[in-house]
């Protein structure tokens, strides 16, 4: 496999893992915050919400997935451009909106769906560019 194909392949794998972990993480956070309720914007309200999030198992499950996302993200940007990896990760918005409709039963308008489609097309354009445009970095030892 050529260097560029290998670079594209491993970046694609990491981006897909990022999308899965971010989607599951955000979904769990949303569920957890629905269980906790709206946060009051006062000192006591914020501290109370912080305490509630610490004791919520669904929030911790969300954090677990977001740690997985962070690891995949850190690994991907160690070899690929930030301006390539992060837009590529936006592919997850389509999945996320679908999950919000199917699992959380949220209403999503046609305009919002169109916005999501534009995001996905934009990400596809970015995906056609070279993943790394900076000088090669040393391998960690």
């Amino acid at each position: 496999m050529s260097h560029e194909r290998r670079l594209r392949f491993k970046t694609l794998v990491m981006v897909l893992l990022m999308v899965v972990c971010a989607n599951l993480g955000d979904l769990m956070l949303k569920r957890g915050m629905l269980q906790i309720g709206a946060v009051q914007m006062s000192t006591s309200g914020i501290w109370q919400a912080l305490g509630s999030t610490i004791h919520n198992e669904t929030i911790w499950l969300g954090i677990f997935f977001l740690i997985g996302f962070t690891f995949c993200y850190m690994t991907a940007v160690s070899w690929a451009d930030y301006s390539y990896v992060m837009p590529a990760g936006a592919f997850g918005y389509a999945v996320q909106t679908l999950l919000a409709v199917l699992i959380l039963h949220e209403a999503v308008s046609a305009r919002r769906w169109f916005g999501v489609v534009l995001i996905v097309v934009g990400v596809m354009l970015v995906g056609q560019t070279h993943p790394s445009t900076t000088t090669p970095r040393p391998v960690a030892s």
Binding site: D81, Y82, S83, Y84, P87, A90, R111, R112, F114, G115, V116, V117, L118, I119, V120, V121, G122, V123, M124, L125, V126, G127, Q128, T129, T133, T134
Partner: peptide
């Protein structure tokens, strides 16, 4: 970060921005 952002990449990012605005 001194990355080379090509017109195609910019276009993709702008489309993402418009999509976000619509949302």
């Amino acid at each position: 970060l001194r990355e080379q952002v090509s017109p195609k990449r910019w276009m993709g990012v702008i489309m993402v921005g418009i999509g976000v605005t619509l949302v």
